[in-house]
Every structure is written in structure tokens, then in C-alpha cells.
């Protein structure tokens, strides 16, 4: 293992330890179970067999939890280092700022993906047991795209952590992600009748803001629609990589110029 790989591995391990020692994931997982278990036990009007609503709620919980975990984990990679002055021993080690940023990103990404992977595994086993179909192609695509989503959100939150306070970063990322989920796809239509300035602004947001709705295959998974073409999945993942790369480059530029 090269020293650079060791450095990245150390940073990843730190983020993972933090996530699992802070017990956030366990709290989210337990909350999810507390919501789903009573719902699964209910047999409305004595008619059993309906499970799609459980899948939908489970998927929604997974998406919300994964987004919150990714945003919060990535958002607290750097601010506490400055606040607790641990950034100094970090920077004093023979590690470049670029490696440090890459390691912090990778750590937050691995932590979020591992937590989401656990959620998906639990969901896959639950859905498989109910429906008798184990991990169909569309489910695997949904997970792949969810990983793309986490990549993008992690990079976005990491960038935000250099620009805003931790709370403001959490809010801004939440608004951007939630807003784009809700209206990202329809922004040009929604502003069609508005003045030119608003239309231009909407167009700018439409072009530049992260299209997180690309990564959402919940409807296909819950309602058993067929899988998406793999070339489309690849294109969306490429979008995530390029967008995240841009965010990280910008974050790196800010970090390198930042006086500690």
C-alpha cells in the first residue's frame, strides 16, 4: 500500500468510526423499524397482501435518511477540525491539502454509502421475502443511482462546508436537494408565463443546479416497472461524477487558499 493510499484509508476509517460511534445510523434505522413494523402489522379491513405502501414508505425513509446522513457527515468533515484545532496536527502531517480533501470526501462518501447499503440490504431482504423476487435488476439500478446521488450530495455538502456555517450548510443543501427533487424537472414549465428575468433565472437554476431527481427510481422499484437502459444509468452516474468533481475542485481551490 502506498503512503497516499494509507492516508486515504486513515481518513476513510475516521469518518466511518465517527458515523457509527455517533450512533446516528442506528437511531435512523431504529426509527425506520419503529415506523414500518406497526404498519406492516396492520391488516386493513382484514385484507392482507398489500405491501406496496410499505415499500414506498421504506423507500422514502431510505431517501430521507441517506440524504440527511450524507449532508451531515460531509458537512462536518472540516468545520469541527477548525473549531477543535485538530486541523493543525492534520496539516502538519506529510499530507497535501488535496489528499486531505480527497480523503475527507472519500470518508464521508464511504460512510454514507455503507449506511445506505445497509438500508438497501434490509429493504431488499424484506421486499424479497414479501414478493418472492430477490434483488431484481431495477432494484440494483436504484441502488447504483442512489450511490451516484450520495456522491453528488457529499461533494455539494463538502463544498458548502467551506462557504457556510455548519447549520447554514445543512439548510442550504437541504433546500437545494429538496427543492430540486420537488420542482427541478418542471422549473422551465412552471416559469413559462413569468417575466423574462425570472425565466432566465429559472433557466440558469435548471441548467446549473444539481438534478437530484435523475437518481430517483423509487416509482419503478415500488410499482415494479422494468429497469432503465444501462446506458442511461451510466450517463446519470457520469453526471454525478462530473458534478461532484466540479464541486470538489472548487472546494479544493477554497481550501488551498484558506489561511489556517
Amino acid at each position: 500500500m502506498t503512503p497516499c493510499c494509507r492516508q486515504l484509508a486513515a481518513l476513510c476509517a475516521l469518518s466511518l468510526r465517527e458515523l457509527y460511534r455517533r450512533k446516528d445510523v442506528w437511531v435512523v434505522f431504529t426509527l425506520g423499524l419503529l415506523i414500518l413494523a406497526p404498519l406492516a402489522a396492520i391488516k386493513p379491513y382484514g385484507i392482507g397482501g398489500g405491501s406496496r405502501h410499505l415499500f414506498e414508505i421504506a423507500q422514502l425513509l431510505i431517501w430521507i435518511s441517506a440524504a440527511v446522513i450524507a449532508i451531515s457527515v460531509a458537512g462536518r468533515q472540516f468545520p469541527p477540525e477548525f473549531e477543535h484545532r485538530t486541523i493543525y496536527p492534520l496539516l502538519a502531517k506529510p499530507v497535501s491539502r488535496t489528499t486531505l480533501l480527497a480523503g475527507k470526501f472519500l470518508g464521508a462518501w464511504v460512510a454514507s454509502v455503507s449506511a445506505t447499503g445497509c438500508f438497501y440490504l434490509a429493504y431488499g431482504l424484506f421486499a424479497g421475502a414479501k414478493m418472492g423476487i430477490w434483488f431484481p435488476a431495477v432494484f440494483c439500478q436504484a441502488f447504483a443511482l442512489h450511490v451516484g446521488f450520495l456522491t453528488l450530495v457529499t461533494a455539494l455538502s463538502l463544498l458548502g462546508s467551506f462557504c457556510f456555517t455548519p447549520t447554514a450548510n445543512l439548510t442550504v443543501c437541504g433546500v437545494v436537494v429538496g427543492g430540486m427533487f420537488a420542482i427541478g424537472q418542471r422549473l422551465p414549465e412552471m416559469t413559462a408565463g413569468q417575466p423574462a428575468v425570472i425565466r432566465a433565472l429559472a433557466k440558469l437554476i435548471y441548467v446549473a443546479a444539481p438534478h437530484v431527481e435523475f437518481f430517483d427510481l423509487r416509482r419503478r422499484v415500488v410499482h415494479e416497472w422494468g429497469p432503465v437502459g444501462w446506458q442511461v444509468v451510466a450517463a446519470v452516474l457520469l453526471y454525478a461524477v462530473v458534478y461532484s468533481g466540479a464541486c470538489l475542485l472548487l472546494a479544493g481551490w477554497i481550501f488551498r487558499r484558506r489561511k489556517c
Partner: peptide
Amino acid sequence: WNWVNTRIHVAEHRHMDGDQAKELIPW
């Protein structure tokens, strides 16, 4: 973006039939 969205998201509908309707009952 619209090209991706129309390929990622379901853009048509279908109808449930028979026993599948049990999925509606919880709502």
C-alpha cells in the same frame, strides 16, 4: 436534462387488475 428525466422516470401509466387492487386498500 429532460431527455434523461424522460428515460429515468416512468412516463406512462397502466391499470391494476384483479387481486392487485389489494394494494389500494391501505390508502
